[in-house]
Simulated assay, not measured.
Amino acid sequence: MSTKQQPVITNQGARTAIEAAEARAREIGVPMNIAIVDAACHLVAFSRMDGAKITSINIAIDKAFTAAGHRAPTSIYKENVWPGGPAFGIWNSNGGRFLTIAGGVPIMQDGIVVGAVGCSTGTPSQDEDVAKKGAEAVEKTLKVKANL
């Protein structure tokens, strides 16, 4: 019986994500808390840029946790989590760590979630923008390696 190894995000991949996310945060002028988790939702790397909100540290980590664990960006929830929505109350799951605010983005390799980026300090759309840049940077390096 053969086993297929699950791709994982490495420490270097996490650093690539943080560097790209920090660069985008500087471009838009919003210092961020940036968290990178692996596919099992464990923290791999974290950066708190100078000026990022202290109250956003856990939010960034939990956005990454949610994106990796649910295998979807945290921005997908929107109206679904409002009273009467099909996912109302989901934020109470996982010990209250499940976040439905934009800013958590999965990192994909060959259609498989290998980790996620979570960002917090700006508006939800700014957090999402910065997180996407981090995820895209890692995904780009994974594609280059796969083509070697």
Score class of each variant (00 low, 15 high):
97 R>M: 07
50 D>F: 05
138 V>C: 05
100 T>V: 10
110 D>G: 09
81 V>L: 09
137 A>D: 08
130 V>L: 07
113 V>M: 00
83 P>S: 08
70 H>V: 03
30 V>C: 06
137 A>N: 11
22 E>M: 06
101 I>S: 04
114 V>I: 15
56 S>P: 04
129 D>R: 12
20 A>K: 03
30 V>N: 02
24 R>V: 04
80 N>S: 15
92 N>P: 00
40 A>S: 14
87 A>R: 10
109 Q>M: 08
55 T>M: 07
32 M>A: 15
23 A>M: 10
101 I>G: 00
86 P>K: 13
61 I>M: 14
33 N>D: 14
15 R>P: 00
122 G>V: 11
57 I>K: 02
24 R>M: 13
51 G>M: 04
121 T>D: 09
122 G>D: 07
100 T>F: 04
128 E>F: 04
81 V>N: 10
87 A>G: 06
87 A>E: 15
46 F>P: 03
112 I>R: 10
53 K>H: 13
109 Q>S: 15
76 I>W: 02
101 I>D: 00
97 R>K: 11
109 Q>P: 00
110 D>R: 05
20 A>Y: 01
73 P>T: 12
110 D>I: 00
140 K>D: 11
21 A>V: 06
122 G>A: 13
76 I>P: 00
74 T>E: 08
99 L>P: 02
57 I>H: 00
79 E>K: 14
144 V>C: 01
94 N>G: 07
99 L>N: 05
14 A>C: 08
24 R>L: 12
20 A>E: 02
132 K>R: 09
68 A>N: 03
119 C>F: 13
103 G>E: 10
124 P>I: 14
106 P>W: 08
107 I>S: 03
44 V>D: 03
53 K>R: 14
50 D>R: 04
51 G>I: 05
14 A>E: 04
133 K>V: 07
145 K>R: 11
90 I>S: 13
72 A>Y: 00
110 D>S: 08
26 R>H: 14
118 G>M: 11
98 F>W: 12
20 A>F: 01
35 A>H: 05
76 I>K: 06
143 K>C: 08
77 Y>I: 11
19 E>C: 03
48 R>Q: 14
95 G>V: 14
91 W>N: 12
87 A>D: 15
69 G>R: 01
130 V>E: 06
37 V>Y: 02
77 Y>N: 09
